[in-house]
Simulated scan of single mutants.
Amino acid sequence: MRLRLQLFEFEDLPWFPAVIRAGMMDYLRFMISGLNTYQPIVPLLREALLATGQQQVLEVCAGAGGGTEGVALALRRFPELAQLRVTLTDLYPQPAAWQLLSNQTSGVIGFEPEPVDALAVPPHLPGFRTVFSAFHHFPPAAAEALLRDAVRQGVGIGVFEGAGKHWLEILLAWTVLPVAQLLITPFIRPFRLSRLFFTYIVPLIPLFTIWDGTVSILRMYPPEQLLALAHRADPEQHFQWQAGKVRHAWGPEVTYLTGRPRTA
C-alpha cells in the first residue's frame, strides 16, 4: 500500500484525556512487547550502534515504551553492547509505565520525566535516537524536522514502524485486535481501575484504539518516502541512510529507516 493519508489520531490532540491516552499506550506496550514486534530490527540497530560507537539509546516519542525492553535486553546480550542504556522520552511522558520498565530491567531503561520535543531534543540528552511506532504521527514537514535535528546534532537515528503497511493490517485492527484488547486488559500492568472502567463500562479506550490504529497504518511512510524525507533533511549528505522492511519468521513486517554520520 503506497497510499498515505494525513488523517488525525486522537492521542495526538492536546485536549485528549490523559487517562484514555495512558490506557491506549499501555495496551500498545503490552501487545508490542508480548508479540516481540521489534525483534527483527535488533541486527540493524546493533550495526548502527557499533558504527557510531554508542552505548546509549535515546528513545523519543516513546509512548509507554512498547518493545523497548525486549530490544534493549537483546542488544545487551552482545558483549560489545553489554553496557547499553536506554532513556525514554516523550512530549506526553508516561512515568508510571516507564518506572515499571526501569524496575523490570534493573535500571537498563531509564527515562526523562519532563516533556521532550522530538523536533528539538535538548543537548543534555545524548545517545543514538530511536523512534518506535511513532514516526507516522508527524506530517512531512515535521518528520523532516525530526530527522534534521538528529543530523544537526550529529547523532545517529533509527525509525521503526511495527507494520508493513498492508490492507490486511487494517482488517486486523478492526477485528482481531479489539477482541484481543478485551481479553488481555485485566493483565496489563501497572494496574489501573480507570483502564478497566474505560475498556468495559465506557469503552472509550478500545474505540479510540481502533480509530488510531487504522489511521496509523494509513499515515505510515513506506521505505521510499522515508528515504525521500531523509534526503531532504540531509541535503549535504552528512549521513548514510538506509530504509526497507524486515520480516518476522511468522510473517509480520517492520518498516525502518536508519541514519548515521558518515564520519562515524
Rank of each mutant, 00 (worst) to 15 (best):
A145T: 13
L146A: 05
L147S: 04
A150W: 04
V151W: 06
V151E: 09
R152W: 12
G154P: 02
G154H: 04
V155H: 05
V155D: 01
G156V: 09
I157M: 08
I157W: 01
I157D: 00
G158D: 09
G158Y: 10
V159W: 02
E161M: 07
G162S: 10
G162N: 09
G164E: 14
W167G: 04
W167P: 04
L168H: 14
L168V: 13
E169L: 05
E169P: 04
E169S: 05
I170F: 01
I170N: 03
I170Q: 03
A173Y: 02
W174M: 12
T175W: 07
T175E: 05
V176I: 11
V179I: 12
Q181D: 14
Q181Y: 14
Q181I: 12
L182V: 09
L182Q: 11
T185Q: 09
P186A: 08
P190S: 07
P190A: 07
P190R: 07
R192N: 02
R192V: 01
L193M: 05
S194V: 05
R195Q: 08
L196V: 01
L196C: 04
F197W: 03
F197K: 00
P203W: 03
P203M: 06
L204H: 09
L204I: 13
I205K: 03
I205V: 13
L207C: 11
